[in-house]
Computed example of a mutant assay.
Amino acid sequence: MVERVITVEVVYAGADRHHLRRVDVAEGCTALEAIEASGIADAMPAGVMQGDRLGIFSKRVPSDHVVEQGDRIEIYRPLVLDPMEARRKRAR
């Protein structure tokens, strides 16, 4: 049986630049497998890639989420400052 191939995008927006890679993966592939296949982790700073900070079209998903044709897998950066704390600082 022939394995179907789908195309997805993997995106990481760093503080100074963003990375976008299109990758062809096997149907039934998970988000984490697609990220590994894209090689984008090599372009990211160490320690940024964590499976709990992923999304597809701005909706958070677990790393074992099965991707579909045309999905845009987003790797989110860790927050530098808690949003509640930032609001408090601005209010002072």
Rank of each mutant, 00 (worst) to 15 (best):
S38N: 06
E36N: 14
R90A: 03
A86M: 14
M84R: 13
R88Q: 10
G55Q: 06
K89M: 11
G51K: 08
V23C: 07
Y76R: 08
V67E: 06
H18E: 11
A31D: 03
R87L: 06
R22L: 12
E33L: 09
V11C: 03
M49W: 07
E36R: 15
L79C: 13
R92H: 12
A13H: 00
E3A: 11
R60G: 09
A91W: 10
Y76F: 07
A13G: 02
A13R: 02
L79H: 08
V61P: 03
M1T: 14
P62V: 05
F57H: 12
F57R: 12
E33S: 02
R87T: 05
D52K: 09
G51V: 08
E74A: 02
G51A: 01
V67Q: 03
D82Y: 05
R90V: 07
L81V: 10
E27I: 04
I75S: 00
F57Y: 15
V2T: 15
M49F: 08
A34K: 04
I40D: 00
D52I: 09
I6M: 10
A31E: 02
T30P: 01
H18L: 10
R88K: 11
D64I: 04
E85S: 10
P83D: 13
L20N: 04
G70I: 05
A34C: 09
R77L: 07
S58F: 14
V8W: 02
R53S: 04
D71G: 06
E85D: 14
V80H: 13
D42V: 11
D16E: 14
P45L: 10
E9Q: 13
V25E: 01
Q50C: 13
Q69E: 15
R17W: 03
E74G: 00
E85L: 10
D16V: 06
